[in-house]
Simulated assay, not measured.
Amino acid sequence: MTHFDLPLDQLRTYRPVLEEPEDFDAFWDKTLAEAREHDLDATFTPVDVPLTTVDVFDVTYAGFGGQPVKGWLVLPAGATGPLPAVVEYIGYGGGRGLPHTHLLWAAAGFAHFVMDTRGQGSAGLVGDTPDPVGSGPSHPGFMTRGVEDPYAYYYRRVFTDGVRAVEAARSHPLVDASRVAVLGASQGGGIAIAVGGLVPDLVAVAADVPFLCHFPRAATLTERNPYREIGYYLKTHIGADEQVFRTLSYFDGVHFAARGTAPALFSVGLEDQTCPPSTVFAAFNAYAGPDKAIKVYAFNDHEGGGYFHQAAQLDWLPRHLRG
C-alpha cells in the first residue's frame, strides 16, 4: 500500500476539532474512584523459569470493579534496590503471553510490568484474564462491546485496568514508584495514551503506532479491523451513529493526549491502514506534555519501525526513567 492519507506536512499540523463530552473528567474521576473502593490486593508469586538473567513473578491485582487482572513482573535477576519501571500494554487480541517473550526491558536494567488485557489473549499472545462483564449486542471483536453506553463500554474497563496496573507495579518493593513509564504498540499504545492522561505523575509515555485515536475519522477512512468493526455495527444498527460516537468520545486518545503531562515518544507508519497516520498525528499534535517527539516511518504499515523503533525507545526511554 502506498501513501493514502494526508501529506506529511499537513499531518504535522493536523488538529481536528473533536467534540469532547462536557463531563469527560467527571466520568473518569468517578470511574477511577469506584475502582479504588476495592483493595488493590496485588500479589506477586515467583515463577520458576529456565532463564538466568531475569526473575519472574506471576501477578494478580484488582482492576475495574475489583475484578482480578493478571500480569507479569519481570526483573533483572537478583535485583536488590528499587528500579525504574516500565508498564506495558498489549496489542489488540493479545494477552500477556509467556514470560520469555518479555526480556527487553529487564535486560536494559528496568522492572517490566506486563498487563494482561481482559477478555483478549486468543490472537498471538495467550491471555489469562476473563472479562466477566456483559454487554448488549456487538460486532465480533471488542470495539463495539457496550458501545451504546459509555458506562458499559469495554474500554472503560480496560483503561481502568491500565491505571490500576501502574498502581500494582508501584506497590512492589523493588519498583521505584516515582519513576514509572507506560508504553505499548497499537492497542497498547492507545491504552498508554489513556493512562498517561489519567495518571499525572508518570515520567514518560511511549505510544507506538497507537490505536483508539480520532474515532470519527478512523471509522470512515480505513477498511481494516478493528476500526471497521464500528462501521459493521452501524451498518446493522442504523440510526445509532450519534450515540455510538458520543460513547467513543469518552475513550478517544485525542482527549487523553490533551491531558498528558509526561514526556512522550510516538511513532507512525505513513502506509498504516490499521491506524491511519492522521489518527496518530491527531493525538500527537494534541499531546500536552513536555518534550514530545514522533518517529515517522515513511514506507511502513502497522509494523511501524519494528525493531528499529525498539532501538529508538531504548535510546529515549532510559533518559527519562533514570532522570
Score class of each variant (00 low, 15 high):
14 Y>H: 14
299 F>D: 15
91 G>E: 00
64 F>C: 14
85 A>W: 04
34 E>C: 04
75 L>R: 10
24 F>W: 10
98 L>Y: 11
123 A>C: 13
152 A>S: 14
87 V>P: 12
191 I>M: 02
103 L>F: 04
39 D>F: 08
198 L>A: 00
250 Y>L: 01
96 R>M: 13
96 R>I: 10
30 K>G: 15
75 L>Y: 10
140 P>W: 08
280 V>D: 03
269 G>H: 02
10 Q>K: 15
189 G>D: 07
49 V>T: 06
74 V>R: 10
266 F>G: 02
218 A>H: 14
127 G>Y: 04
321 L>Q: 09
284 F>C: 07
291 D>K: 11
163 V>P: 01
151 Y>N: 14
128 D>P: 00
86 V>K: 05
16 P>M: 09
41 D>E: 12
89 Y>I: 08
108 A>I: 09
29 D>G: 08
132 P>N: 15
114 V>S: 01
208 D>K: 11
315 D>E: 11
293 A>K: 00
257 A>R: 01
72 W>Q: 05
75 L>S: 12
25 D>M: 01
1 M>E: 15
132 P>A: 15
306 G>M: 00
115 M>A: 12
188 G>V: 00
162 G>V: 11
101 T>P: 01
174 L>D: 01
69 V>H: 03
75 L>M: 13
163 V>Q: 08
228 R>P: 03
44 F>R: 06
238 I>R: 06
122 S>D: 15
250 Y>M: 00
192 A>I: 01
140 P>C: 01
271 E>D: 11
128 D>T: 05
166 V>N: 01
299 F>P: 13
16 P>C: 08
240 A>E: 02
240 A>H: 07
106 A>W: 03
1 M>S: 15
143 M>D: 01
71 G>K: 00
317 L>P: 05
87 V>C: 12
252 D>E: 06
20 E>Y: 12
81 G>I: 12
